[in-house]
Design a protein around this nucleic acid. Structure first.
Length: 273
DNA sequence: ATGACTGATGGAATCAGA
């Protein structure tokens, strides 16, 4: 099973590129971020036509997340991240797809740092860490997929010294990401490419893609029950070089679920905390 | 330290992104 994550940076203007990529790579599950569209303006019909069923949490102008299932309807577990009833931003949605718990998230950018936006990012991170711990306690096979807005190490940024004071790379941010992973999650892309400079985002500015001035900020984290099923992981880099691209490229994993067949969630057992 | 580029909103200029 292939699970992909793709920050589309506006699903309305990105729809042709999204449909082309889905047609070409046929992921079984696709997690989308930055829809930048209100709930009623999600292009459900076009995605159905392409063979995908979807759940989504839209928001006017900003944010917005979606989970697509190829030929299957994602069974929604919840939307919105627990821990702050006053947080109305659409950054989090969970669903069971093909027996796997799929978490699609768009972690706040946090710039400028320090400041209130950075505080919001760190608090959001703590809420995510709490939810991730809950999921691990249940033992469900789970994937945390999305735009984490974190470069975990110096290998994940083209020029680390330029980013040390940025919200995506500050020590507090990296420490939170490492604390999350240390719960027992597997960083799929880094596991399959231990020493490689491999990016998922390139700024629109200054010909960043042409210079390969990129960042690795989109991640797929696997629960222990799924780690043994990881077969491959990579970035669909060429998508970033096309006409009217997102500033992110799709990032994906390939899982061999026959290896964890007895651990998959049954349809009648999707009731989770 | 700043700006470059893009999308959404609204119908120009501004915010937000990373």
């Amino acid at each position: 099973m292939r699970i992909a994550t793709f920050n589309v940076n506006g699903i309305t203007s990105r729809l042709p590129a999204l449909l082309q990529w889905l047609e070409e790579t046929q992921p079984d599950v696709a997690c989308l971020q930055e829809l930048k569209a209100p709930q009623e303006r999600f292009p459900e019909a076009a995605l159905n036509e392409a063979g995908y069923q979807a759940i989504w949490h839209g928001q006017k102008s900003w944010n917005g997340v979606a989970i697509l299932g190829k030929g299957v309807a994602p069974q929604e577990v919840g939307r919105g991240l627990a821990g702050d009833p006053e947080d109305l931003q659409s950054r989090y949605i969970e669903a069971v797809v093909n027996g796997v718990m799929v978490v699609c998230l768009y972690l706040p950018n946090g710039n400028p740092a320090p400041g209130p936006k950075f505080d919001y990012k760190l608090k959001w991170f703590e809420r995510l860490i709490a939810r991730a711990a809950e999921l691990l306690e249940t033992g469900v096979p789970a994937v945390l997929a999305g735009d984490f807005n974190v470069m975990p190490t110096e290998l994940d940024v083209y020029k680390p010294e330029r980013w040390v004071n940025d919200a995506l790379f500050r020590p507090e941010t990296r420490e939170a990401f490492h604390r999350l992973v240390a719960q027992g999650w597997t960083d799929s892309l880094r596991t399959m490419h231990p020493d490689e400079r491999i990016y998922t985002f390139w700024d629109y500015f200054r010909n960043a893609f042409g210079r390969d001035a990129g960042l690795r900020i989109d991640h797929l984290l696997l629960s222990p029950s799924l780690a043994g099923a990881l077969k491959a992981s990579d970035v669909d880099r060429e998508v970033r070089g096309r006409e009217k691209p997102s500033d992110h490229a799709p990032t994906w994993i390939e899982l061999d679920l026959s290896k964890v067949h007895n651990k998959l969630l049954k349809p009648e057992k999707v009731a989770l905390p």
